[in-house]
Each structure stands twice: as C-alpha cells, then as structure tokens.
Amino acid sequence: MKRLLYLFCVVVLYSCNYFENKKIYSEDLLNEELQTIDWNSVDEYPSFSLCDSLSAKVERKTCFTTTLLKHVNQYLALQKIVVSQDIEDTIALKLAIDKKGVIKILDVKAKTETRSAIPKIDSLLRYSITTLPKIFPAIKRGQQVDTEFVLPVAILIE
C-alpha cells in the first residue's frame, strides 16, 4: 500500500508540469513569423488587366514587363527627337508601384552622352509612365504590397 501511495505521489508531482500552460506572447509569434517570410519576392507580381488571363507567375511577370516596355517604347517612338549623333543606350528606370497601383519613377540612369543629346529624356520617360493603363499592385500573403524594380529601356536613335 505504501508503494502504491508513493507511486501515486510521484505521478501527481511530475504530472503537474503537464497541466502547466506555457505563455505565448503575440510579439514572439509575430517575430518568428516575420523571420520566415522571404521579403525579396512576392506571391503575385504587379499586373495589367491584359495579363490577368495568365496563370503562371513567370508568365504574368513577363506579360507585365513586356506591356510596360512596349508602352514606353511606343510613346518614345511618337516623339520627334532630333539628335546630331547616333545614340545607343540602355536607360535603367527604377520604378515603384505602391499598394494602390500608382507607379512612379524613382531614378533614371542614362549615359552622360544620352542626357546631353536628349535633355528632356527624363520628362519624356516620366510622362510615358503616367499614361499607362491601370496597374494592379503586387500581392504578398494575400495583401497588396509596395514594390520596386528596375526596367531597362533600350534607346536607339540613328
């Protein structure tokens, strides 16, 4: 009987830890979750309504960048740009698209020769971006997010 009582006391003492609730802090959960997220990629890239029919992530990204480049190039082709020498350059447009789908140019990197030959290249590029059709923002974990990327625009004027 003493053995049974002893065994019962041991079981009760050690089982108290079983019923103990561990405190989980929401801040700890949030920090743990934030560390597991890949912040350099999105679940869905920004998109135009033209690209909505595509299902693959890579196809949608290609459609978006192709549509964007095509629009900028068409706008530049309509401009009467007169130069005294041939220009061949790839301009790097750093773009930002916010959560509402508003696009803006953050930076324009071009050769010095291109800037001196076409002094208004920045304003032409900025205006071409403002005439784009509606953009749907990128999606990360079901939420619309801000994105930034660099778009290379080839300039060839003879």
Rank of each mutant, 00 (worst) to 15 (best):
K2S: 04
R3C: 08
R3H: 07
L4M: 07
L5V: 08
L5E: 12
L7C: 05
C9R: 12
C9T: 10
V10P: 01
V11L: 14
V11T: 07
Y14S: 14
C16N: 07
N17F: 12
N17D: 09
N17V: 06
Y18T: 04
F19Q: 00
E20G: 01
K22I: 06
K23D: 04
I24E: 00
Y25D: 03
E27F: 00
E27H: 02
E27P: 02
D28K: 00
N31A: 01
N31H: 00
E32H: 00
E32R: 01
L34D: 00
I37F: 03
I37L: 05
D38I: 02
W39P: 00
S41N: 03
S41G: 02
S41V: 07
S41P: 00
S41A: 07
V42T: 13
E44K: 14
P46A: 12
F48G: 10
F48C: 10
L50Y: 13
C51H: 12
S53E: 12
V58W: 08
R60F: 02
R60M: 10
R60W: 05
C63P: 12
T66H: 10
T67R: 06
L69F: 00
L69Q: 15
Q74K: 12
Q74S: 13
Q74I: 09
Y75E: 12
L76F: 02
L78W: 01
L78C: 08
K80Y: 09
I81C: 04
I81P: 04
V82P: 00
V82Y: 11
D86V: 05
D86N: 09
I87N: 06
I87R: 07
D89E: 04
D89P: 03
D89V: 07
T90D: 14
T90I: 15
I91P: 10
I91R: 14
I97K: 12
D98Q: 06
K100Y: 14
G101E: 12
I103A: 14
I105C: 15
I105H: 09
L106N: 13
D107Y: 07
A110R: 13
T112H: 11
T112W: 04
T112V: 11
T112N: 12
E113Q: 14
E113I: 15
T114F: 06
R115Q: 15
R115P: 04
R115S: 12
S116Q: 14
A117C: 06
P119N: 07
K120A: 13
D122Y: 08
L124S: 06
L124E: 06
L125P: 09
L125S: 05
R126W: 04
Y127T: 11
Y127G: 04
I129A: 15
I129R: 08
I129Y: 04
T130I: 11
T131S: 10
T131G: 09
P133Q: 10
P133L: 07
I135P: 04
P137M: 11
P137R: 11
I139W: 02
I139E: 12
I139L: 07
I139C: 05
R141S: 09
R141C: 01
G142Y: 08
G142M: 05
G142S: 08
Q143W: 02
Q144I: 10
D146P: 01
D146R: 14
T147F: 05
T147N: 09
E148C: 04
E148F: 05
E148I: 14
F149L: 14
F149R: 13
L151K: 13
P152Y: 03
V153P: 03
V153D: 08
L156S: 15
I157K: 15
